[in-house]
Design a protein around this nucleic acid. Structure first.
Length: 509
DNA sequence: ACATCGGTTGGGGTT
DNA sequence: AAACCCCAACCGATG
């Protein structure tokens, strides 16, 4: 049998069920990656993430070559290419990992149709997440995906245990494929080909690839005490070295199997008499990922406000200047700006740092739509994962999942708890580095002579705050209360089909 | 006696 | 000081 394993995510050989099954069934296997130019119309990918992808493909190719295979990278759209490749390589099997993102579902449906028409067997397996979202739906008591983490855990507890991760398959029986690849341009992409200049990329702190992923996992989890006492809320959003694992980019591209990580964590936990628990533990972090994936897969228009049934409808402002200032780290709030500069240059920021800047952009300060923030994260984050990105923006903007909108992060005091000296700010905004710690979070309040001594005049060398936090916070809280009231009224009209309400419901409003 | 329902209540929610 | 919503647990009414 001649098969294609189609790499999209799951850029790995370990614990890749669809790949393993294809290897077992085939005599000849073509490891394929399709570089689809139309991807740019779905998602904006910044230089750092392109680099991560290129590195991941290089690593995959290296590993495949050790097994006398190679990665075949072909340019074009899947639906145009597949029929030609099926014919050229005499393919009778296509295997790939299931993907729940809307654009991927559409893409894969087209391939499935082609395969069915040409009598090509399909192998499709869930391995980007621990659970199949549809299984979660089936096991949920409420007939919908659980909207709370605790409810989600309850559903999982009814679902039986996971099977352990698979090893790298044995490729030794496969025939060589080089002879099929004559006159076929199928080399790995370079940054130049993708239109990226090396100078656009920041320092490469997190190189892509399966090898690097496993190495990072082993290193990060080698301190078992740290693993079993991990509590997310106690980690620091503004430490100079990441206070969490930074495995997220590897999970996003599937360089690391979430199941392999899960079992590794469980193994470490089993050796300890007491360990932290979900939601704050490391296993808990993986389950947050599952939580958002399930909700994203089962909610229409999950990455939008309009047409999204779980999303509060809120009249956000359009303000391109403020949005640009936020994106470029020029809000005048050093804590916010430092985080945004770290995001742009390095491609990773701590989860709580994401909270702070997301709250600032939306309900906290700027009152700009979370959809605009989502796009910026999508561009800059190495770990930008459609479901998780949208889920977290819904959460932070208090549009879904989270509703205590009166809890607003202070762009001044939040960072002080874990970095009273402001070293994080000094690192990412060098122009502020001379300010004493008393002024570094609010440099505009420093007397003129202090600013002069620090060689940084606020309003000249570093911007004044674009909004006054205390003022806009109060205004936004009342806007939020109004928006919530409107949404409640809307939902009652929907339920009853009438504007007349029962007295009891009326009283509640 | 039992199951099912509609509605209320209170505890809790990754800072 | 409380604000928000979700949901499990509880309650009484009903068949």
């Amino acid at each position: 049998m001649n098969g294609i394993y189609w790499f999209r995510k799951a850029l790995r050989l370990h614990d890749n069920p669809a790949l393993s099954e294809a290897v077992e069934k085939c005599e000849t296997l073509f490891p394929l990656f399709i570089l689809d130019p139309s991807i740019r119309s779905f998602v904006k990918v910044g230089a750092n993430r392109w680099r991560f992808l290129v590195q991941s493909l290089q690593d995959l190719d290296r590993s495949l070559r050790e097994a006398n295979l190679r990665l075949i990278v072909i340019r074009g759209t899947p639906k145009d290419l597949m029929p030609k490749l099926i014919d050229k390589w005499k393919i009778n099997l296509i295997a790939y990992e299931m993907d729940t993102e809307p654009f991927a579902i559409k893409r894969d449906q087209e391939i499935d149709q082609i395969a069915n028409k040409l009598k090509v067997e399909l192998i499709k397996r869930v391995s980007h997440t621990l659970y199949d979202p549809n299984d979660i739906l089936r096991n949920s008591a409420s007939k919908s995906t659980p909207f709370t983490y605790q409810g989600f855990l309850t559903t999982l507890s009814k679902m039986g245990s996971l099977s352990p991760p698979l090893p790298v398959p044995d490729f030794s029986h496969l025939h060589p494929i080089e002879k099929y690849l004559k006159n076929e341009p199928c080399e790995l992409p370079t940054l130049e080909e993708l239109g990226i200049k090396e100078s656009e990329c920041g320092p490469c702190l997190f190189p892509g690839g399966e090898t690097e992923a496993i190495k990072r996992m082993e290193q990060t989890l080698s301190d078992h005490k740290w693993v079993v006492s991990f509590a997310k809320p106690n980690t620091s959003p503004n430490s100079l070295k990441p206070s969490t694992t930074v495995l997220s980019p590897y999970l996003k591209f599937g360089c690391l199997s979430c199941r392999r990580l899960y079992f590794k964590l469980k193994e470490i936990e089993s050796k300890s008499s007491k360990c932290t628990q979900p939601p704050v533990s490391l296993v808990g972090q993986l389950l947050w990922r599952e939580f958002f994936y399930a909700n994203a897969a089962l909610t229409p228009n999950f990455d939008k406000m309009v047409g999204n049934p779980i999303c509060k409808q809120i009249e956000w402002d359009k303000n391109d200047e403020h949005l640009k200032a936020w994106k470029e780290g020029r809000t005048g709030y050093p804590f916010i700006d430092a985080i945004m500069i770290q995001l742009k240059t390095e491609g990773w920021i701590h989860h709580l740092a994401r909270h702070a800047v997301a709250c600032f952009l939306t309900r906290g300060d700027l009152w700009i739509s979370w959809e605009d923030g989502l796009k910026v994260f999508e561009e800059y984050l190495l770990d930008a994962d459609w479901s998780l990105n949208a889920g977290n923006w819904l959460w932070l903007s208090a549009s879904a999942f989270f509703h205590q909108y009166f809890r607003v992060y202070s762009p001044i005091s939040f960072g002080k708890k874990t970095d009273p000296n402001g070293d994080f700010i000094r690192k990412y905004i060098p122009v502020l580095r001379r300010f004493p710690k008393e002024h570094i979070y609010e440099p505009w309040k420093a007397p003129k002579f202090v600013q002069q001594n620090c060689k940084c005049l606020i309003g000249v060398d570093y911007p004044k705050p674009i909004v006054d936090h205390e003022t806009v916070r109060k205004i936004n809280l009342s806007k939020m209360a109004k928006a919530y009231a409107n949404n409640k009224a809307e939902s009652i009209v929907e339920e009853t089909g009438d504007v007349l309400m029962s007295p009891k419901k009326k009283k509640k409003i």
